[in-house]
Write a protein that binds this DNA or RNA. Structure first.
Lengths: 251, 251
DNA sequence: GAAAACACTATGCACTGCATGGAGTAAAAA
DNA sequence: TTTTTACTCCATGCAGTGCATAGTGTTTTC
């Protein structure tokens, strides 16, 4: 009956706090003009712990309780620092995305794109769970924005026509992510063993004996490209060359 | 002490059963030379139900109990039909991937690639959760293999040099998936409301007032490309043109 | 000094995949 | 035909999840 006279505390309070946490190393202050007891944990340490867990055991192993346990605390401690699980993952994502330093090659567009793509590739290889996170043109955090800005600067410098840029951006990110994903899965194979993969292939051929005739091109593809798992970086640079060639051709 | 004299029932029994389920419409029989009571459910109906749930509520909402509830049964019923949750998702993935019919345009490589990419794009748009599933060159099931074979046939017909094919395949799949992912997220925005997205952007600018100076290129990008959310198909065809141009250039 | 705002803990709820054991059924083996 | 065996389906239970809630104690502000 009697409605609580809540002062409607700005509907985007959570969003605001999250943005301030995202940009905490770029000029904002984390939302704690605090009145209660001192915080015993640190946001960056929490994120590093979460990233370490994700690197070692996968994104699914990241839970509030698992992180808090490494500090000897209860699972609910995490929430004052991050707000929600989804926010925690977004913060981890940006934290793991810090852009390294390198000089843009000024030899060719292809070389500049290769340098950018390889740098991003290394980040994704170091944190394979990043491929499980959504990606969008819209900025999530400062580190992701750094990557996008850097890429656009390259395209601008080499006078790629503006109409072709969004397409190029999409293809670049998509290719790096896909290449890193397969490279990471090959890397994981060494641990678990390739046996299961071969088992499935053999079982398929056993049940569908005429598989090579049904799929003459795709069944013959894999043994022909051992450089795939050997050197995914070569595949990536090949992609960049292809894309640069397309950009030079299309006006 | 006394070890059971189990006859070691072939270690890859699960793998074998899974493969037979994957190819059940292509010549294999589902692994039930059955002795017990009749099965009351049907594998294809189970997969359709799972796909319907994933389409409507996301992949996370797919659970054995949720599917079984739609048949008025307990959650454990699902396991005799699919083996495990991961197998269930793999079967759903291939089931949702059925390749439609279309004629390869013989006008140009770009047109043929566009037709392939658009067809795959529509499948991904109809089932956006497919982007959350892993993808690899290696065959998972018959429908996925159909797509790969079709693409390789196009590349073969237009005499794309074999050395460039793996790279092209990767870029094509990656681009279609990425484009579909952003298109699907824009589509979902209409329901939930774009408000939250704008809120975050505004909050960022409020806390980082000099954001446009820090990121002159990337902050100016979004309003310049409204065709992105309006017409992602145009973006996709643009990508295909770019890639075809690159393939023509690189020998 | 009083009071509000905070960090942290404990508990509980609804949910997950799936191991387990049991009941009943149909086909194969005797 | 009888017995055995393999099967489906159900109920329960376990360990795990995110997080709402309530309570306790600490710190800052009025």
């Amino acid at each position: 009956m009697s409605v609580e006279p809540e002062p409607e505390p700005e509907p985007d309070q959570d969003v605001d706090a999250h943005v301030r946490r995202l940009w905490r190393h770029r000029g904002t202050t984390v939302p704690t003009p605090r009145r209660g007891p001192r915080q015993q944990l640190d946001l960056d340490e929490i994120l590093q712990t979460g990233i370490a867990i994700a690197d070692a055991e996968g994104l699914a192993a990241v839970s509030t309780r698992a992180i808090a346990a490494r500090f000897g605390k209860s699972g609910m401690v995490i929430y004052p620092y991050v707000g929600s699980k989804e926010n925690l993952l977004a913060l981890m994502q940006d934290h793991a995305c810090a852009m390294p330093q390198w000089d843009d090659p000024d030899t060719s567009l292809a070389d500049a794109l290769q340098a950018w793509a390889l740098a991003l590739f290394e980040v994704y290889l170091a944190h394979p769970w990043l491929t499980e996170r959504p990606w969008s043109h819209a900025s999530q955090g400062p580190n992701e924005q750094d990557w996008l800005e850097r890429l656009l600067r390259i395209l601008d410098h080499w006078k790629v026509p503006p109409s072709a840029r969004p397409v190029a951006v999409t293809m670049l990110y998509a290719t790096v992510r896909a290449t890193a994903e397969t490279a990471a899965s090959y890397q994981r194979m060494d641990r678990q063993g390739i046996a299961q993969w071969r088992d499935r292939a053999h079982a398929t051929v056993r049940h569908i004996p005429d598989l090579p005739e049904r799929y003459p091109l795709s069944t013959g593809l894999e043994p022909l490209t051992p450089q795939w798992q050997d050197n995914p970086r070569a595949a990536l640079t090949g992609s960049m060359r292809l894309l640069a060639a397309g950009l030079r051709g299309a006006g």
